[in-house]
Design a protein around this nucleic acid. Structure first.
Length: 542
RNA sequence: UGGGCUGUCGCCAAGCGGUAAGGCAACGGACUUUGACUCCGUCAUGCGAAGGUUCGAAUCCUUCCAGCUCAGCCA
């Protein structure tokens, strides 16, 4: 059986009974999910779907001091739904505080946990270092009765924050720091928004494996960063005991998107500094941001599928993501023309004052999407890039003497170039051949190049503000034109989202070459923040 | 610095002792109303390095190198 290593583990563990698979996605509610988190969502949910198993959404809210919980939970739910997944169970780790407390009592009774009076600094001292083993806490050998008594009083609120902790009794000499008697309960006098009445809270290392066990999770899939925690995960499950199935933690390599803005800490800072709008800023690869940019979930699924699942950390460039976005959009999006860097093309043998309407397919790959009428006239704008006076080898676009096709219109031959006194090209002159009209069946000669264009009379300049986007050239939007230099793809659904109108600027070719956003010249003049600038900022951030 | 993990083409990634899958990118060609799309074809005597075991090694052993990660009462 082919498949990634996680799929193989699942099959080995579950045999023919793969529908027993139970996974979970356990985010901490602190910020909006981004594409990195989305990989975890995708792995857990799609594996469950693939094997006929189940996947829970569990909010890991063991730390009551974290802020912004409610909003984050909604963002998480939105993101998961948007990706097309449904959770089978929805829980909070805080739902299990009672049980977790009982488990801790069990551990104490088994002599596996003890109340420690060391403070934070002492704890660090006693823990030792990478090269030196830790020292046993002087409180390590307290009697079960004393531990029980103290732990009860911790719960009752008799002690101050940080005065005591409950620690797992494992091995202070372990080379794995996580096993040096980790703290499993701490005193925090802070009301939990979802679980009132507590002043002691379990730590992640303790709550996570046991929450998995309580929910009957069979496979706990997480990032490789938790690899060192696996022995402790297993220790908790085994020493509390009695779980069937006992959950198994398997780690996968996280996704690292290069040239993208990732990392909640950094995003938060950008928002605080006013550099970007909010978590759903389209320049971000948060689920909300990508959604506003018109990405669709299928693109993400395909992307993750192609990137694969392995133990090494994948370093994928954002252009690969964009490739998948384009592939997805190209299927059924409206394809339109626009010019980003215009230069005037005058068709000297076309009657002055005349305009005609030409028919263009909405999507060349998909004739069922119909056609639209676009205006054509004597004066057009073409892409400055599509003309050169000195063509390099294999240049098939417009240059003096060369004939090209204007997409959806006629063949034109460049006759000459008009320049101003500084030598800058102001107009390109050409003649057209009426016989070559699109759809006429003309086949006497062929051209190597086809270029896009817009009718000068009907074109409208791009709006000059930071968060502008270009408008369609279809019947509903005569005001302007959207352009995609290569794939000519525009996401119709993106423009359906009202918020998209506030969307991103950015370096149009660097950021998303074929997207529907553009950087306005005035923005750069004013020094407003562009995507590349943010990436620079990011590298200086750490 | 001790531990753990990772290291196979520019980027991902199969491979699990029997003689290096696949995808993306790139390149060559065909086709084409954009150079996109599509279709053909090319693309690792090589698997971080060096030794060793074996008839045979990316796969086993040894040593070394590089990257990531761990010393929160965060997750």
């Amino acid at each position: 059986m082919q498949g990634n290593f996680i799929e193989r583990h699942i099959q080995e563990d579950l045999g023919a009974d793969t529908q027993r698979l139970q996974t979970r996605f356990p985010p901490e509610p602190s910020g909006y999910p981004h594409i990195g988190n989305a990989k975890g969502i995708w792995i857990n949910f799609s594996l469950a779907a693939q094997f006929g198993g189940k996947c829970n959404l569990r909010i890991d809210d063991t730390d009551p001091t974290k802020e912004n919980m409610a909003a984050s939970v909604e963002a998480l739910k939105d993101g998961i739904r948007w990706m097309g997944f449904k959770w089978d169970g929805f829980f909070y780790a805080s739902n299990y505080f009672d049980k977790l407390y009982e488990f801790a009592v069990t551990l104490i009774k088994k002599g596996k946990a003890y109340v420690c009076d060391l403070d934070g600094e002492q704890l660090r001292d006693y823990r030792g270092s990478f090269t030196q083993p830790g020292k046993n806490s002087p409180f390590r050998e307290r009697s079960v009765e004393e531990n029980l008594n103290l732990f009860t009083r911790m719960k009752a609120g008799e002690f101050e924050n940080g005065a005591r902790t409950l620690r797992a009794k494992i091995d202070m000499a372990s080379p794995n720091m996580n096993m040096r008697d980790p703290v499993i309960y701490r005193i925090i006098h802070h009301e939990h928004y979802n679980a009132p009445g507590w002043c002691i809270y379990p730590t992640y290392d303790y709550a996570h494996p046991l929450s998995d066990a309580i929910e009957g999770i069979t496979h706990s899939l997480c990032g490789v960063e938790f690899e060192d925690h696996r022995p402790l995960y297993e220790w908790c499950v085994e020493n509390v005991g009695g779980f069937d199935p006992a959950p198994r933690q398997i780690e996968f390599g996280e996704l690292n998107l290069t040239n993208a803005i990732l990392g909640k800490r950094f995003i938060r800072k950008l928002i605080e500094d006013g550099v970007i709008g909010y978590w759903d800023d389209p320049r971000l690869v948060t689920l909300a941001g990508m959604r506003r940019r018109g990405y669709r979930p299928a693109a993400l699924h395909n992307f993750f599928e192609a990137a694969g699942v392995a133990k090494s950390i994948a370093n994928v460039d954002i252009s690969v993501l964009e490739q998948f976005v384009r592939d997805d959009l190209a299927q059924d999006s409206k394809v339109v023309m626009a010019v980003l860097d215009p230069i005037k093309l005058v068709i000297t043998n076309y009657p002055e004052g005349q305009t005609e309407m030409l028919e263009m397919p909405n999507n060349p790959k998909n004739p069922e999407m119909g056609t639209r009428q676009i205006p054509f006239g004597r004066e057009l704008y073409i892409e400055a890039d599509d003309f050169t006076e000195t063509p390099p080898p294999k240049y098939h676009r417009l240059y003096p003497g060369n004939e090209v096709r204007l997409a959806g219109a006629y063949f034109v031959t460049c006759t000459n170039v008009i320049k101003d006194e500084s030598g800058k090209i102001t107009e390109i002159h050409a003649t057209y051949d009426p016989a070559t009209k699109s759809g006429s069946g003309f086949s006497q000669r062929k051209v190597k190049g086809t270029i896009h264009w817009v009718c000068a009379e009907r074109a409208v300049p791009i709006q000059a503000n930071l968060y502008s986007y270009l408008v369609f050239d279809d019947e509903n939007a005569e005001e302007g034109f959207v352009f995609n230099p290569n794939s000519l793809v525009v996401a119709e659904n993106a423009l359906a989202e009202p918020s998209i109108k506030q969307a991103a600027p950015d370096d149009r070719f660097q950021f998303m070459r074929n997207a529907f956003f553009c950087l306005d010249a005035k923005d750069s003049a004013e020094g407003k923040m562009t995507f590349n600038r943010i990436v620079e900022l990011k590298s200086s951030f750490k």
